[in-house]
Design a protein around this nucleic acid. Sequence first.
DNA 1: GTATGTGAACCACTTCACAGCA
DNA 2: TGCTGTGAAGTGGTTCACATAC
Lengths: 213, 213
Amino acid sequence: MLPLEIPEVVIDRLPIYARALALLEKQGREVVNSQELGERLSVTPAQIRKDLSYFGRFGKQGRGYNVSRLLQELHQILGLTREWPMVLVGVGQLGRAIAAYDGFVPQGFRIVEAFDADPKIIGAKLNGLEVKPVDALPEVLRRHRAALAIVAVPAAVAQEVIDMLVESGVRAILNYAPIAPHVPPHVRIKDIDPVLALQSMTFYIKSAADAAK
Amino acid sequence: MLPLEIPEVVIDRLPIYARALALLEKQGREVVNSQELGERLSVTPAQIRKDLSYFGRFGKQGRGYNVSRLLQELHQILGLTREWPMVLVGVGQLGRAIAAYDGFVPQGFRIVEAFDADPKIIGAKLNGLEVKPVDALPEVLRRHRAALAIVAVPAAVAQEVIDMLVESGVRAILNYAPIAPHVPPHVRIKDIDPVLALQSMTFYIKSAADAAK
DNA sequence: GTATGTGAACCACTTCACAGCA
DNA sequence: TGCTGTGAAGTGGTTCACATAC
């Protein structure tokens, strides 16, 4: 059923579809077609239909997609029908902001352990979580079996921390450190770096901004 | 130079190259070749050479690239030889974390104005900045001429805020709200959404995690 | 000898266009 | 009739491979 190679770009779009469908569902919509969904997401209708076709036939010709049904299917496909415990490494300013972010839990992602290297931070409470020393990470992960980790440590030690997480069996990492991390093929990693995003946008506006100067 | 022809993916990679070069420069390296740079960034050497060739000939055959020279060229290309003032809209938990993030200023990005709709927040100080009401945004932007904005407001009002920013002449937006925003073609926008990143990674690890259960 | 710069070949994703079904 | 699902065509980005330059 599943073709061996589903393009990664397709997988990256599925959560976007799911988010839009969740909104439609909240608004009480029962059916949506690829045309309208595409307009809402700035994606072509063909793109949406093609993407979904990798996984099955979820629509009805002449009608469109049942919103709740398709949302459920996408959750199934993405593995979002369960909760995902996560560990957080790095409890500095950034790490604390991540821990406080209220967008994770409603989507089933919960930080269940927090680690730091700073003795002044270790032992402190973070959202009712006791911050543990990074050295305890392998041992703690061996028991917890969390598959997801968030890295929010300084760039200088980020690769080291990532190696430790990989070593401890983590399967996917959300990396906030401004580095180009290395991980083995069986581990997924995504980087969040607002500075890179800004630095590529300035390319497009620099001439106009200069001209307007 | 001729931005009309250059693929956006290429532009997105330039800041990554620049970051790696900045690190090499700090380490005192004078020369690097596409081979080594590629290994550090998990990019093929041909990719790097091709990307750079869109903008000029910065290397020396048989030798490689002068680190400082190439870094400077990239800064020039990306428009990073100047400071970029930014306005922040949304000073809730997320907005405050963004304002406190210490990664922007060293790269020349500084928040110069902050706005919120909540009367309880308006007037408060944020890093020495007085939080102003969103209604004042058009008027303030008319004077400031900031080309960059960061949106950290609730999803429900994000599009409205983005429209206001576009209306006020902002040229690029970093959007933290979990929506699919609409902007006219002359405005750039990039979304930062850690939840989407997590939701696509779970696809790849769900089966393995289930199997290991 | 060594590594760049680049047309050409290749590959992957996107879009088209229409058969097929509700 | 209307919209999905999907081979086929099209597009655009990546990789190759080698002439070129140091």
